[in-house]
Write a protein that binds this DNA or RNA. Structure first.
Lengths: 215, 215
DNA sequence: TGCGAACCGTACCGTACGGTACTGATGGAG
DNA sequence: CTCCATCAGTACCGTACGGTACGGTTCGCA
């Protein structure tokens, strides 16, 4: 059905053709630049040089387009796994700091902020799966990387915790605090980004004070 | 101008009459129930039994209405100050736990979530002061209470920290972690609320491990 | 009793959006 | 060459919203 060569490339098995991916790229661009209000079907069609009819054929609905945008963006972000080699204390700290810095960078990204704003705006009315999708594809993903890292630290007798979820929650809170919310509310991230490194190190130090094994 | 008896009552000196406050109450109700999409001028007028013309006369604009809603809600929430009496370790912990629990309760409240969603949704386009207002009236307010509490703890030689802002950030992160974002994204707070007490105590214990003075 | 201000209810207007239908062009398959 | 599917571009429709204008009513005040 519908042609033999679909030339699906960057879609990561999402069932999307290259063309559709390019359209989603333009839609994300529009969303980042102008917010949800700028994300109209006519606008997407114009920006992507496609017809509205094709949009509805491919994504069925405006909500379908939004879901596809989240899925597409999530498929592009791949969480690199921690090298499972033997860890010493300095190596664990280095890995934790790298994780914290990556976390802050991801949360401060244009696309991440725009998609989170979109999902939060849609979260009021019932039946909107956007929030759930973002939660599942975003937090769970990065949570897995953190979980693996923490587990490796425990295996190496460098960390001590009973509930991995609680330890991860503490790490997340120490790293992020209320910065994510402030950026979502529109605070300019320009000045903040420069302090991410120092912030990540401080947070990891505090985390290790809480959960690091005292020799 | 406009009548001698304005009968301003619950407006806390915001220059609002009782009638206007009641209208804002209904507007908040609409926002909580149906999200921003349900917050139409006609809907507010119908719910509050007033005319659209009056709405525009009082608030000038739809954005003016939104700003007035935030200001009105902020004027209702008064942060009770900590009793400045002498603190012992147990008292400090009790105060911190109470603060943490209040913080979680406030963040999980219907109106708070709805207003945060509204401000975040408007944060994309430039010139929207809603995010700034919410930040100023919300976080700054509760941050002052926390700051006073931390300062009292330091005065009593129960806490040790150099940067009060950093200590407050750690406390906030340990208490809230990513729960606020999850609730903003639509996760049902029903199941979470029951664990707030335990969560607050755990977070305060961790905070005291980090910043409590070791005798 | 008459005046005037405020206000409710509603009708109205322009616009913009979601979604659909139609036309014409392209390009591959038989 | 012909047929057929896909798609771009555009016109179109119904609806809903922000904002304005108007008639009717209440109520304080002289």
């Amino acid at each position: 059905m519908q042609g033999v060569l679909e030339s699906r490339g960057a879609s990561a098995g999402s069932g999307l053709t290259e063309r559709q991916g390019a359209v989603l790229e333009q839609a994300l661009r529009l969303l980042v630049d102008g917010g949800e209000k700028a994300l109209t079907t006519a606008g997407v069609a114009r920006a992507a040089n496609c017809s509205k009819e094709s949009l509805y054929k491919w994504f069925g609905d405006r909500d379908g387009l939004l879901s596809a945008m989240i899925g597409y963006q999530a498929s592009k972000v791949r969480t690199l796994d921690v090298s499972a080699g033997a860890l010493d204390a300095a190596g664990l700290r280095r890995h934790l700091v790298a994780f914290a810095k990556d976390l802050l960078d991801v949360l401060a990204g244009d696309v991440s902020l725009a998609l989170n704003r979109l999902a939060i705006g849609q979260a009021s009315r019932e039946g909107s799966k956007l929030g759930h999708m973002l939660q599942e594809r975003g937090r769970r993903q990065i949570g897995r990387r953190a979980g693996a890292l923490l587990e490796a630290g425990r295996k190496a007798r460098l960390l001590a915790f009973d509930d991995a979820e609680e330890a991860y929650g503490a790490l997340y809170g120490l790293v992020v605090s209320d910065w994510h919310l402030r950026m979502l509310l529109g605070e300019e991230p320009g000045e903040m980004k420069k302090s991410f490194s120092r912030r990540a190190e401080r947070a990891v130090d505090a985390f290790l004070t809480l959960y690091g094994k005292k020799e």
